[in-house]
Design a protein around this nucleic acid. Structure first.
Lengths: 335, 335
DNA sequence: CTGAAAGCGCTAACAT
DNA sequence: ATGTTAGCGCTTTCAG
């Protein structure tokens, strides 16, 4: 690895001269600057990032802690975060909590030792269930900024980026009501998560506001160790009255559509389906699933922007919550 | 941030004493060790990673450069890499090339300045098409080890982890032949990639070895700007003789299955389908797609192992290529 | 215009 | 058993 010292020796000048020259300091003669730069280029000199960071107490690195990279939502968020971070001259170090609080604690500990300037994270399921977030607050107390996205917590006071989960489910349910559906069922495999709870609330609200709707709300929660496929096939088989489904997680919507087709249920004539899936699954379904579009790329981008904003002005102790708007995109599974 | 200096001042000893104490040096009295450790724990002292790395010329960080994180194969590989790296005490810095050579160059440049000890990467499509890999060889020349996985190149002399693409396609095709299929069609949307080419070769070999098979090989390549869905629906609609499909990319197999079901083709009675998809799509299909299982987790793990192995013994200039075996898993879309 | 020196936080050879 | 010093590669005062 070629260092300032090497350059200095080659050119018979001091290290500090070289350093200044490379930064176009006007303390240095144009002639020297040129010579230094020429040699630097020739030898492919690159400033050692560790040394620069150590000196400046600034790593230009963001720690990203996500629950599960195999979940397409988080993969996409990571994609967006990486893209925006790169654009702004930041690297990202990625850790996966695998939904476990212990791993989350580890990752946070590991990186909060000067490795990163701040964190972007989404809370592990276990952490949300246990409602123990002191490990996150501990980082904040060390004056390392955190931006929470999607899965957030009231007990943490920091910047946040969320979607309007309540409103999104509310709108989706309203649409199904407007179609004249009489038996709207909500399916959730994420009822432990903050976002899951909010979406259910939105569904309740829409139902309760509709005077003409006679049925009680029907919420199907599927636990981690159940087979989503079996449960849904069963549901459609036994409860023939269901004429609309709002599936509030990543995958249930697609599964519901598959099973409906298999059972020869006419979609959307006799059954409407709205999912929260990402566009990537569309190529696997025919008709195309109608979805609540979550603008995941915007979520990632906004998270990076907020973090860097705070990094640039740490005095800024004001915390804000940014809500990314959703879109109800009607495709082939709704009337 | 609490440093050795802080601890030293609090305890009225020197910095080096503190350092040694924390490393259980036997130059230090048990008593002092205990006091130092107690205070360190109390103040939540964590050694500054940058300083340690700078001093030791060892970052314990791996740079991971992948083409596309929205591709489930790479997401899963990244998952495995992160997991194994963490287990071995390494962090990962992730960069996404987005299949672009330019971004690949940038990432490599950016991280080869002391940020990482080595790289794990899979080559961008553009790089494979252009066959220009000097930027990768340049890193190797700087004595920074690289492990290439999945998408590799003959023109790069380094450690590699691949699957037996040729053999996998060969076996899959042989199975279709053994079912007595007469019109086996290969579908590929990745014919520009090294792995794509190898899989096609495997298909050819199997076909050509079968004396009883009369038909010419039938290879359908779908380009980036075509709609895979349209193309496949069209294919099945127009060529009614097709009785078996081997889909060598991530998604075509599932799409083919969907379209076949839509067109009321009896799968697997009249049409067998084998895909190269990951298990994650299975929940979206009924019947379940038969696939070539690529053991992506093993690929990721092996990559980390190889890199760390080389890191631990840099003199080891011997490069090896590890081939991860595949499995043909027969499910509902084959007889 | 250039250089010497200090220091970021840590380790380790070398005193004491 | 503890302390001093030098140095990893870099930036930045302060001298010259």
């Amino acid at each position: 690895m070629v260092t300032l010292k090497h350059l200095a020796e080659q050119l018979n000048v001091s290290v500090s001269t070289v350093s200044k020259a490379l930064h176009d300091s006007d303390e240095i003669s144009p002639d020297t600057i040129e010579r230094v730069k020429a040699l630097a280029k020739f030898l492919n000199y690159k400033p050692n990032r560790l040394a620069v960071s150590l000196k400046s107490s600034k790593t230009n690195t963001i720690g990203v802690v996500i629950p599960n990279i195999l979940n397409h939502f988080f993969a996409k968020a990571l994609f967006a975060i990486e893209k925006e971070a790169t654009k702004q001259g930041y690297n990202i170090i990625t850790c996966v909590s695998n939904e476990m609080r212990e791993k989350e604690i580890n990752s946070l500990q590991l990186l909060s030792n000067g490795s990163v300037d701040g964190f972007i994270m989404s809370i592990a399921e276990e952490t949300q269930v246990l409602k123990k977030v002191d490990h996150i607050n501990a980082i904040l107390k060390q004056n390392i900024p955190i931006v929470l996205f999607d899965r957030v917590s009231e007990d943490i006071d920091c910047d946040k980026v969320i979607i309007d989960d309540f409103g999104a489910a509310y709108e989706a349910t309203k649409h199904l009501l407007s179609e004249g559906r009489k038996h709207i069922t909500l399916i959730s495999s994420i009822d432990e998560l903050s976002v899951g709870k909010l979406r259910v609330e939105g569904y309740y609200k829409a139902i309760s506001e509709d005077k003409k709707y006679k049925e009680k709300p029907n919420v199907i929660t599927i636990s981690r160790d159940e087979s989503i496929e079996e449960r849904i096939e069963n549901l459609l088989n036994t409860d023939k009255k269901i004429d609309a489904i709002i599936a509030i997680d990543n995958t249930s919507g697609v599964v519901a559509l598959q099973k409906a087709l298999k059972l020869n249920i006419d979609v959307p004539k006799n059954l409407s389906i709205i999912g929260f899936s990402d566009e990537n699954v569309l190529k696997f379904t025919d008709p195309k699933l109608s979805t609540v579009s979550q603008h995941t790329l915007d979520i990632g981008r906004a998270s990076v922007e907020m973090l860097i904003h705070k990094l640039n002005d740490k005095s800024l102790s004001q915390n804000t919550t940014k809500t990314i708007k959703t879109n109800l995109i009607l495709r082939g599974t709704t009337k």
